[in-house]
């Protein structure tokens, strides 16, 4: 669902993310960054978008069976959605807390799993929504404003 302040969609693409496959973790976000770079957007807008995408991608690889990252570009905003099929998050409030993590050793060795992921996603998004159903999956929606940066 587009947000209320948007009307015109200028670009949309979905990327498949395979759960558990650490070899490809981050490839989607590298692509998203290079797509956004070509669109003449401010550098910090490109960085923030790539950052929230990357943390979401790492989450899918780390915890879900599979997922999709969907990039939608509207006239004023960049919208990134991360939709996964996986265990879901039983307590979202707890999961959002900086420092809280259920990461495995493998995830920690990659340099993640210190409980910063969702926290980073929230703090670098201009608007952020999360919903989750235990046993089904998690849905994240991140919005970055194109022209007013933090």
């Amino acid at each position: 669902m587009p947000t209320q302040e948007t009307d015109h969609i200028s670009y949309q693409r979905s990327f498949y993310v395979e759960g558990g496959n650490f070899n490809y973790a981050g490839t989607v976000s590298t692509s998203i960054k290079s797509i956004l770079k070509q669109m003449d957007l401010p550098n910090d807008v490109v960085r923030k978008s790539a950052l929230v995408s990357y943390e979401s991608e790492i989450n899918i690889v780390s915890y879900a069976r599979k997922g999709v990252i969907k990039l939608s570009i509207y006239s004023d905003i960049i919208q990134i959605e991360a939709i996964d099929e996986g265990p879901g998050i039983p307590n979202i409030e707890l999961a959002m807390q900086e420092g809280y993590s259920t990461a495995t050793q493998q995830i920690r060795e990659m340099g993640f799993g210190a409980g910063m992921g969702l926290y980073n996603i929230k703090s670098f998004s201009d608007k952020f929504d999360i919903s989750s159903e235990v046993g089904k999956g998690t849905y994240l929606k991140m919005i970055i404003n194109k022209f007013s940066s933090r």
Binding site: T30, K33, N43, L51, F112
Partner: peptide, 15 residues
């Protein structure tokens, strides 16, 4: 001290 792909991707994302 981390040497995997994620270091490179993180560096790319942040310029």
């Amino acid at each position: 001290g981390l040497t995997n792909d994620q270091v490179i991707r993180t560096a790319d994302i942040l310029d």
